[in-house]
Amino acid sequence: MSYQSVDQLQKVLTAKVFHYAKDSKKAAGRALGTLVEIITFYALKSWGFERNVAIERPLPEFGNDEITHNVEYSLHPSNLLMKMKFSRDELPITAKKIANNQKLADLGITAESMKSNALLSNDLILRNSCTVCDCGETFINAYLDQLRKSGGQYSIVSLRRRPFAIFECKRVGVEEGMRKGPQTIEKAKQGAYVARTVSALQKIRLTNGSMGGLIQKRDGSFRHGDYYNLMAEIIASDDSELLSRFILTVGVVSNHGNWFTSENHNKELKVLAQSYDWLLFLTDTGIA
């Protein structure tokens, strides 16, 4: 069943699903935020990035490992280690069971690095991008490939710690009955800070109002120029040094339709658009 708008969907969730909650409207809003995250994950999967995806991993700021930020999705360079088949009798498929595979055991995985996650539970609850263990500059994830009545198959993948892209989801908009969304600017500021601090390619506002870009190489030299031209050059290049420290930042935001118009770009939109490299919108039609 579809709804005319996100606001209409939130009304239904508030009245019929989360009516028991102390703040049913807030609970419905959080559920819609989860919906944005689900749509984003399956978009990444449909684009062929599933085996690059990590979920809610701490991402250090560039040049400042003391401060990390959890992001909804990060995309990492990955290497397929193996594919494993299993029967239903072997459920649950836990990180410990996966790590006991001889090929993984040869990697010297320690008990301290092991996670308590389960890729697939006895009740067939799936954990997407299930982290098995952390190995310093790499970590190992498991991904379910297929599931049938008799059993299934999963892939075990090694991913590099530093991602090449991040996707952050923000459910922003002016809710019905409100002239302004009081929390939307705070969400925009949070996202903007992360987007501006994780990549080696730094944004610099020039005196003419345009956006300049600056990136330092390991030999101490700098490359600079128009931010978007420089970003395109780095992405298209085969310079492993620059690519290894560049992170594409993507914001995925819900737009309630009343958040902004072509004539009126609210401050939240400007903050997000000028901070993320790409800004993708989920409209009322896309969500409801």
Rank of each mutant, 00 (worst) to 15 (best):
L120A: 02
R205N: 11
S2T: 15
D239E: 07
G136K: 01
S129G: 01
A142K: 02
A111G: 06
Q202C: 04
A142R: 00
L104H: 04
D284Y: 00
K45M: 06
P60I: 11
L272K: 04
K96Q: 13
H224Y: 15
N64A: 15
A232N: 14
A118T: 12
E268W: 02
I55H: 06
K25F: 13
V157P: 00
S46T: 13
G191C: 02
N79K: 13
D89G: 07
D23W: 00
N258P: 05
G225Q: 09
I185D: 08
G151H: 07
R223P: 05
V174N: 10
S210C: 09
I215Y: 07
S87W: 03
F41M: 05
M231L: 14
L243I: 12
T184S: 12
I204S: 08
H256I: 13
E186T: 11
F164R: 00
A288Q: 01
K96Y: 05
G48L: 06
Y193F: 15
F246T: 08
S221Y: 03
I166N: 03
H265N: 10
L280M: 14
D238Y: 05
G29H: 02
M114N: 07
D277I: 01
R196Y: 11
I215N: 00
A111M: 11
C135V: 12
F260D: 08
K217Q: 10
A188L: 10
F164C: 04
L104R: 06
F86A: 05
D23V: 07
S2L: 14
Q10V: 15
L248I: 13
L107M: 12
L44D: 06
I234D: 01
L214G: 00
G212N: 02
N100C: 07
F222S: 05
E66M: 11
F222C: 05
G286K: 02
Q183R: 11
